[in-house]
């Protein structure tokens, strides 16, 4: 790749644009009344999101990726809360806003698409009223203007005969259409950042492909955080990837860097557990063992018990920092051993 084309590709993927969202050392803690120690679901996560960039948060269930997303909107479920760190949207700190200010951020500055479109919409209210409710809350418009905005939002996400659908109830739509409605709802107030939490996971494969197409076409220039456990989905639409393990980011880099030359043993493990058609290999290799649960108090590197490169150093926790020109939280990133 020549220097010129590399710069162009970095600009188009937003890697050099202004920072929209900046997350610094966020810790989300859940008290455990029956035990003395609380549980940190998110344990010091930092990342930056630049304009027009799509960041993939990847990791197993329980790695803290959804909790990270919820913390951005101040939606960490009770009794959990953010006990450390800061979240800034442009220059404005949003993690310590009073609730009435936070409500103006939710859906207006940050739009979120949730995992399950089957349960994510109110079953007894029609689509139009649920969309209009959000429009009227955040924009100064009349009921009829809101309806028009709702119609456009549905039309924009590829819902056929969108005007009639405003009257429809969630149970009258298929899963794919419902997820389109959820996306329309997240986009309707033109939020600066879109957070998609496992937005395609609950859908079957063909619908999943359609929703990914929608993301690619409609949201290619959007500033977005895509949370997924599926490396394939991340590879399709993300510019950058942050791999999470046990509440921390263990590796981050551009999609090409992370996929073609993973540095962290966990990332390598994740990638060899994904089926591929382009290279021959004997079989999928699962990562041995289980990720640490809330019960485990982990000293040192949380992955060390499952890692085949573990050495004495691993009893001390490696920080996420530049090693071998890449951001990895590992004492022995691939290439150094």
């Amino acid at each position: 790749m020549t220097l010129q084309t590399e710069i162009e590709s970095r600009v188009s993927s937003g890697l050099d644009n202004e920072v929209i969202l900046s997350v610094q050392d966020v810790v989300v803690q859940f008290p455990r009344p029956k035990k003395k120690t609380p549980f940190n679901a998110v344990n010091g996560v930092s990342f930056e999101l630049r304009k027009g960039e799509t960041l993939g948060l990847v990791g197993e269930s329980g790695s803290g990726k959804s909790m990270t997303a919820l913390s951005l909107l101040g939606l960490v479920p009770i009794p959990g809360k953010i006990i450390e760190g800061s979240i800034n949207l442009r220059e404005r700190r949003i993690d310590n806003l009073p609730i009435n200010m936070l409500r103006k951020v939710r859906g207006n500055d940050l739009g979120m698409v949730f995992q399950d479109p089957m349960t994510g919409l109110n079953p007894v209210r029609n689509i139009g009223s649920q969309l209009c409710e959000s429009v009227i809350r955040h924009q100064k418009v009349s009921k009829s203007e809101a309806t028009e905005i709702a119609f456009k939002a549905l039309d924009d996400v590829g819902i056929p005969s969108a005007r009639d659908r405003l009257e429809a109830f969630p149970h009258e739509l298929s899963g794919g259409l419902r997820q389109r409605v959820m996306i329309a709802l997240a986009l309707i107030n033109h939020p600066e950042v879109i957070i998609a939490d496992e937005a395609t996971t609950a859908l079957d494969a063909t619908i999943q492909a359609q929703i990914l197409d929608l993301f690619r076409e409609r949201l290619s220039n959007a500033t977005m955080i895509l949370i997924t456990h599926d490396m394939g989905v991340a590879a399709e639409i993300c510019d950058r990837i942050a791999v999470m393990y046990a509440g921390r980011i263990v590796e981050t880099g551009t999609i090409e860097e992370v996929l073609s030359s993973p540095r962290h043993p966990y990332t390598m493990g994740l990638l060899s557990a994904v089926p591929r058609f382009d290279i021959r290999r004997p079989k999928l290799v699962p990562i041995p063992g289980q990720p640490p649960t809330a019960e485990d108090i982990v000293q040192g590197c949380a992955f060390s018990s499952r890692c085949k490169f573990t050495q004495e150093n691993c009893a001390e926790r490696p920080l996420l920092k530049k090693r071998d020109n890449r951001l990895v939280a590992c004492w022995f990133p691939k290439g150094e051993v």
């Binding site: 939606l75 409500r103 939710r106 859906g107 949730f114 349960t119 994510g120 809350r137 997240a186």
Partner: peptide, 14 residues
């Protein structure tokens, strides 16, 4: 505790 409440909350509902 339903998901649609979380959706509404994520859209700024009080």
């Amino acid at each position: 505790r339903e998901d649609y409440i979380r959706t509404a909350r994520a859209n700024g509902a009080g």
